[in-house]
Nucleic acid binder design. Structure first.
Lengths: 224, 224
DNA sequence: TCAAAAGTGTTAGATTTACACCCATGA
DNA sequence: TCATGGGTGTAAATCTAACACTTTTGA
C-alpha cells in the first residue's frame, strides 16, 4: 500500500505553548529538556506524533499527559519546518497554543514534570526555534482575544470585572478605562452577572460574573 | 545520529492555494490529480517535502515549478494532520496560500499542467481535505487583506482605483462607497498616483496608481 | 449627442474616548 | 475613621456612512 515511494519521511512533533494568567502576568509553561540533544535547555513541552495519530490528537494527548486537563482551548500556531531546526534529527513540528486557568493545573504535577511558569516578558532562550513559536503564538492569541471572547479560558469560572479588565490590559499591553470597559461588558449578553460576591480582593466585595457559552454561540449564529 | 528512534516517520507534503483576480472574480488554480489514489479528482497543486528541504522552501519550489514565478506573496495556512486524510498513505500536509497577478502567469504553462482558474464561489469537491484548506486560506486571506495592503499582489503593477475597489469588494464580499474608498486611499502614502492614464476601461481614462513597498515599510516601522 | 466610467465634499449618525466622584467595608 | 477597591454617566471628539452631480471622450 505504499503509493508514494521514493519520498522522504520525517518525524513530526507537536509543541505546546501553554498560556496562564497569574499574579497579574501572562505566563507560559516551560521546562528543562530531558533528552539529548539539548538536554537541560529551556524548552516548550512537546511530543512526537504517532503513526496512527491525528496531529491535533497528539497535541491533546501531550497536553493531557502533562496537565490532566481535557477540553482545553487549543489552536494551531503553524508548522515549523526548517531542516536543521532540531539538532538531533529532522523533525517537522506543529505548534499549538493553549489557554488554561492556572488554578486548574495541579502544582504538584507541574513540579513533577519540572515545569515553571514564566512571564512572557521574561522568556529565556529556548531550545531550537521555540522562541519563534512563542512569539507567533502570542501574536495570534492577542489577535484572537481582541476579536473573540476567549479570555475566560484564562480565568476561573467566576471572576470579577476587575480581574477581567486586568487580564485584557495585560494581554493587550494597554491601560483601559474602567467605566468604558464596564459599559462594553454590559453589551455582551454572554457575560453574565451572578448574585455572588467575591470578598477576597476588596473589603466591599465585587460581583462575580461568568461566561455563558450558550449565549455566545447564539450571538454568533445570529450574525450570519 | 538517530536520536529519536522508535518514533514514526511520515510523509510531509505542501499544498498551494493560488489566488488570482480575474474577470471581477477571486479565483484559485486547481487541476485534475494525476496520480493514484484519487487520480482524476479535482485537487490543489502540491508536492512532497524532500529530506533536506525546509518546508517553506518546498512550497516555494512547487510554486516555481508550476508558475515560473518567484518572490510571491505566500503565507502558511496551517498543518493538516488527520490520519486518513490521504487514502494512499499517511501524509501530513502543510497548506500555503499565494497571491498572484494572473497576468504574470503564462497561460500555456497553465494548460500544460492541466490547471483551471475557478471562482472561489464555485469550487467543486476537491481531493481529500483540500476544500477545508481552501476555506481556511480564504478566511485568513480576507483577514490579512483587511488589515494589511496585500491586495496589490493580485493586481498588475499599475492599476486604477476602480480596479482596486472592485478587488476589495470582491474579496470582502461587500459594496463600497466610491467616494469614501477614494478618500481612504488618499491617506495611504504607499498608494502612489502616477501621471499615466489607462484608457482600456473607459473613454475618459483613469489615472493609474502603483504600490510603493518602500513607503509601506516606513509607515510600519514608524508605528512601533 | 449620449452613454459610460472617472472624479470630487459635505453632513448626520455612530462610536470612541476622556473624565471624577460616591459607596461599602474591614482593619 | 480611613484606606482600599467597587461601582456609576455624560459630553466632546473622532470616525464612519450616506449621498449626487460634473467631467471627459469615443462611438
Amino acid at each position: 500500500m505504499a503509493f508514494y515511494k521514493d519520498y522522504a519521511k520525517v518525524l513530526v512533533a507537536v509543541d505546546c505553548i501553554i498560556f496562564g494568567f497569574d499574579e497579574g502576568k501572562l505566563k507560559i509553561l516551560i521546562g528543562r529538556r530531558k533528552i539529548d540533544p539539548g538536554r537541560g535547555e529551556w524548552s516548550l513541552y512537546g511530543g512526537f506524533v504517532a503513526a496512527n495519530e491525528d496531529v491535533n490528537d497528539a497535541a491533546n494527548r501531550v497536553l493531557y499527559e502533562l496537565t490532566g486537563l481535557k477540553t482545553l482551548y487549543m489552536r494551531q500556531v503553524g508548522a515549523f519546518g526548517k531542516v536543521d531546526r532540531d539538532p538531533g534529527e529532522r523533525v517537522v513540528s506543529v505548534a499549538y497554543y493553549v489557554l488554561i486557568n492556572t488554578k486548574d493545573y495541579d502544582d504538584n504535577l507541574r513540579r513533577q514534570y519540572g515545569l515553571e511558569w514564566v512571564s512572557v516578558n521574561a522568556i529565556p532562550m529556548l531550545f531550537s526555534d521555540h522562541n519563534i513559536m512563542v512569539q507567533k503564538a502570542l501574536k495570534l492569541m492577542k489577535q484572537k482575544i481582541s476579536t473573540e471572547p476567549v479570555a475566560f479560558r484564562l480565568l476561573p469560572p467566576l471572576f470579577t470585572l476587575t480581574q477581567l479588565q486586568r487580564l485584557y490590559e495585560t494581554i493587550l499591553d494597554t491601560e483601559l478605562d474602567k467605566r468604558n470597559f464596564r459599559k462594553r461588558v454590559k453589551e455582551f449578553s454572554y457575560i453574565e452577572k451572578t448574585e455572588l460576591i467575591d470578598k477576597t480582593s476588596s473589603k466591599r466585595g465585587a460581583y462575580l460574573y461568568r461566561f455563558n457559552q450558550h449565549h455566545y454561540q447564539e450571538e454568533q449564529t445570529f450574525k450570519l
